[in-house]
């Protein structure tokens, strides 16, 4: 596995957030979480997370709008959308707005970690080259 990078989980489902945060931390990742888009944007300003796992339905903003905002503020962010609502259109749009992946709930933790690792590796290689 890659070095343990920082992950921001954004989801308004408290149970999911709590359990996933705990489990990811147990696997050695640094994890913080947010329940709204504005909260997430604040954490991003601190330039902290490397990977953002973002729910598509947030109380204060549509997840895809939130994705746009994140990419506008910090284009290098790695964003994985996670949603219980499978929609081809939302999937396509998310990718067009720069998401690195679009995954469906329920998702096994191991699968989520693989998605995060793959997105991180794909991105990390670019950084090596451009730095």
């Amino acid at each position: 596995m890659s070095d343990r990078f920082n992950i921001l989980l954004v989801d308004d489902e408290k149970d999911f957030l709590e359990i996933t945060t705990k489990r990811l931390m147990r696997r050695g990742y640094n994890v913080r979480n947010a329940t709204t888009c504005s909260e997430a944007l604040l954490i991003i300003e601190g330039d902290w997370p490397e990977v953002i796992v973002l729910d598509v339905m947030l109380p204060d903003r549509d997840g895809i709008e939130c994705l746009k905002e994140i990419k506008r503020k910090r284009p290098s962010s790695i964003v994985i959308l996670l949603t219980g609502h499978a929609s081809m259109q939302a999937g396509r749009q998310s990718m067009e707005y720069g998401a690195n992946d679009y995954c469906l709930k329920p998702i096994e933790l191991d699968e989520l970690i693989e998605k995060i690792e793959i997105a991180y590796r794909e991105k990390a290689k670019t950084r090596d080259i451009s730095d």
Partner: peptide, 17 residues
């Protein structure tokens, strides 16, 4: 339907990639 919709969505995302 969730199976069909979920698989179609995941396919779209990966083929887009």
């Amino acid at each position: 339907m969730a199976f069909v919709r979920g698989h179609c969505t995941a396919l779209t995302v990966n083929i887009y990639k």
